[in-house]
């Protein structure tokens, strides 16, 4: 639809009563679904990392002290009887994971065992952009990509019988500021959605 058409239709909508509602801008919060599905679309189009904070973060990643523009932390359990095989698989395939993920703009930041908690592991992924999340999700979902194949092999070691043993969270560099905690918004409780911000008033 062309902008001129939009304008004429909007004027008609205004005359029909839409003008009675005050102008309103609402922020749409990306919604992260369970099972690793990401409900985020068409994002890199807005320019990707920009502004002083974004440049600082990009520099931090380049210098190696930040893990990513966004970090996905995946906590999972591997049954103790599979632990040795899992460790061997990691030794063999972590270089592959690093190389294959990098092609999608994702940094594989390693898999770590939680000291003192037998069977408990964390994998960290660093995303360079929202676009990287999409590309990575697409690559993972496809059965015929080397990355998808590797991740499915890795998942075979993960004990999914108890959902309490599987958890994901998205971490953002605190220096990113607003994208992490918009001014005036209280932090959402664990597992709760952040309150919507209307931008009014």
């Amino acid at each position: 639809m062309k902008a001129e058409n939009d304008l004429e239709r909007l004027k008609a909508r205004m005359r029909a009563g839409a003008a009675l509602a005050a102008p309103e801008v609402r922020e749409i919060r990306p919604e992260i679904r369970s099972a690793g599905l990401w409900h985020i679309t068409d994002t890199a189009a807005a320019g990707g990392p920009a502004g002083p904070a974004g440049q600082d973060i990009a520099k931090g990643i380049e210098e190696g002290f930040l893990l990513g523009m966004m970090v996905r932390e995946v906590r999972f359990r591997v049954a103790p009887e599979k632990a040795d095989a899992f460790h061997a698989w990691l030794r063999r395939h972590e270089p592959d994971l690093r190389t294959l993920a990098a092609r999608e703009g994702v940094l594989y930041r390693g898999t770590y065992g939680a000291f003192g908690r037998l069977g408990s592991y964390v994998t960290l992924w660093g995303y360079s952009s929202f676009e990287a999340i999409q590309k990575f999700s697409i690559a993972v979902a496809r059965l015929d990509t080397p990355l998808g194949e590797r991740l499915r092999e890795m998942q075979d070691y993960v004990d999914l019988r108890d959902p309490a043993h599987y958890e994901e969270q998205l971490l953002l560099p605190a220096a990113a500021g607003r994208s992490l905690s918009p001014a005036g918004d209280p932090a959402p409780a664990p597992g709760k959605r952040a309150p919507r911000r209307t931008g009014r008033g």
Binding site: V25, E27, I28, P30, G48, A53, I57, F130, A176
Partner: peptide
């Protein structure tokens, strides 16, 4: 402002 895009 933080580098990532906003969706409004």
């Amino acid at each position: 402002e933080g580098g990532g895009p906003r969706l409004l």
